[in-house]
Design a protein around this nucleic acid. Structure first.
Length: 513
DNA sequence: CTAGGGTTAG
């Protein structure tokens, strides 16, 4: 099959294509390119499946001369949004020369599909090409950098934006601030915020949310509340998202009453209807603090029907506080919801296991795998010398340093045991998503990442920074503390909820998270 | 004459 690159380009040979002799022989080919393009664009947008896109692609190929970067861009963009990122990459690589639109479409698609490393490598290709990154490029590049915790690149990108005079519109600013939040440089995030001409725009709620969320993630609820309270005075209307951040922070800080006040204020002072997420945060807030009866009462008085997350949250709280009675009630409710909610498997399986119904637990677990509804494996990554290394729970066999990592892990664990570390088997059953198989405890992805980083980096250098896609489990949390003592290193884990700083045997979250 | 965008939480 001919590749797109091999086809004559419309701009390079127009004279030849419309010459009378050519036109006479191939009359269908003299239609103006513009009309051909405009004919394809809506088709691409209307395509629901990748197969359609491939058919359109083939059709465009048949009319080779009207192939344009616009169509290529549309194809790349449409296929990436339909979960066919590999097809996007192949269209992208076939079209030359690549302009800024094409690069942007691909980078955006890669980010939407969580292929952050690949997104960054295409950004590098872009820098080496004639296409110059613009204000549409940076939000995605910044997002990738943030996700991968690449602190050095973060600064370089900010410089690049500044030096090349890319317009700092509110999108770029939000992305910049959020990147600094995610790499835990709250000071820089605040600087971006303070210098933003958009921050007092009534539509700048997002920028405020990013900052407040940053404070919450770091555990600085005082600063978060301070920022929050300055919003109305500046004409910024808090939205439902900022309350999610604040309530989560209250839960992590054990500030139950503050959280309840914020929840009331959200409804009464700001007229925001709580969503299911807000309700489950309150259940978590009460539950974690051991106020289980109140949590139950709260659920029963909710104006909407509690979903499985709510019952699952209550169930986890009951287990932590060893309240069998309410736990069983929560399990009953979870069972009632089972047929309707394909996402309930993790909770349900744990609930069965907790009441000793191992066969049911196993049945749920395997049907979860059959239907492919698992939340995906836990993974962690860690950066060493600018390279991102990713680890998946229980599976480091393919890693080239698998033996060394395993050995190092053994060494850490036995050292920790001497200092009082007890492998926390209760976490095997805890609802920390997918990683709870017994043998997986010793090979959780964050442990693998830690061992790898300790091998690869020399003592007393920069902190080890690990990113984890789920919440860190209690056993790993405990081991990290011992590891921070033995290695004399600072270890930072950014999990899905917040930052954990391990130093000299303690964690910044105060073990309540 | 020009396609494409940011916060919770993947």
């Amino acid at each position: 099959m001919k590749t797109l690159a091999a086809l004559p380009k419309q701009t390079s040979a127009p004279a030849k294509l419309i010459s009378p002799s050519t036109a006479a022989r191939t009359p269908t080919r003299i239609a103006p390119a513009v009309s051909t393009e405009s004919q394809f664009v809506p088709l691409i947008h209307a395509s629901k499946v990748v197969l359609h896109l491939r058919q359109i692609h083939a059709q465009i190929l048949l009319q080779g001369f009207s192939w344009s970067s616009l169509l290529a861009t549309q194809l790349v963009s449409a296929s990436s949004l339909r979960n066919a990122i590999d097809y996007s990459i192949s269209v992208f690589s076939q079209y030359h020369p690549k302009n800024v639109f094409l690069f942007n479409a691909l980078i955006r698609g890669l980010v939407k599909n969580a292929r952050f490393e690949v997104a960054l490598s295409h950004f590098v290709l872009m820098l080496r090409s004639d296409a110059r990154p613009d204000r549409m490029t940076y939000p995605f590049v910044l997002k990738s950098t943030a996700q991968l915790f690449l602190r050095r690149l973060a600064g370089e990108l900010h410089c690049m934006i500044f030096k090349t005079g890319v317009e700092l519109d509110s999108f770029v600013e939000v992305s910049l601030a959020d990147m600094y939040v995610k790499i835990e440089e709250l000071g820089y995030a605040l600087k971006v915020f303070d210098e933003s001409p958009h921050r007092l725009d009534s539509r700048s709620t997002l920028l405020w949310n990013v900052l407040i969320n940053g404070c919450c993630k770091k555990g600085d609820i005082v600063k978060a509340m301070e920022l929050f309270h300055t919003m109305p005075g500046r004409g910024i209307k808090p939205d439902e998202v900022v309350f999610l951040a604040l309530l989560t922070a209250c839960t992590h800080a054990g500030q139950v009453d503050l959280g309840l006040n914020i929840f009331d204020s959200m409804r009464l002072d700001y007229q925001i209807d709580p969503s299911m997420k807000h309700y489950s945060l309150i259940v978590d807030l009460l539950g974690r603090a051991g106020r289980l009866n109140e949590a139950l009462k709260f659920i029963e008085e909710m104006p909407i029907n509690p979903d499985l997350v709510i019952w699952g949250t209550l169930f986890c709280a009951c287990r932590a506080h060893k309240n069998v009675e309410i736990a069983e009630f929560a399990v009953t409710k979870l069972l009632e919801l089972e047929p309707k909610h394909p996402g309930s498997y993790v909770f349900l399986s744990n609930a069965y296991a907790a009441v000793g119904r191992w066969e049911d637990a196993e049945r749920v677990r395997s049907s979860m795998q059959d239907k492919g509804v698992g939340k995906g494996p836990g993974w962690s990554h860690v950066e060493v010398d600018g390279q991102v290394h990713r680890f998946v729970a229980g599976d480091n066999a393919h890693h080239k340093d698998a033996n060394e990592i395993h050995q190092k892990l053994e060494e850490i664990m036995s050292g920790a045991r001497k200092q009082g570390y007890m492998p926390g088997t209760e976490w095997v059953l805890h609802n920390i998503e997918e990683e709870e198989k017994e043998d997986a405890l010793g090979s959780h992805s964050e442990k693998l990442a830690l061992a790898f980083a300790l091998i690869q980096t020399s003592p007393k250098t920069a902190p080890i920074r690990i990113v984890k896609n789920l919440r860190i489990c209690g056993d790993c949390h405990s081991l990290m503390k011992y590891a921070s003592i033995m290695s004399q290193r600072e270890i930072i884990v950014r999990d899905i909820k917040r930052f954990h700083h391990f130093k000299d045997g303690t964690c910044s979250c105060g073990d309540y998270w």
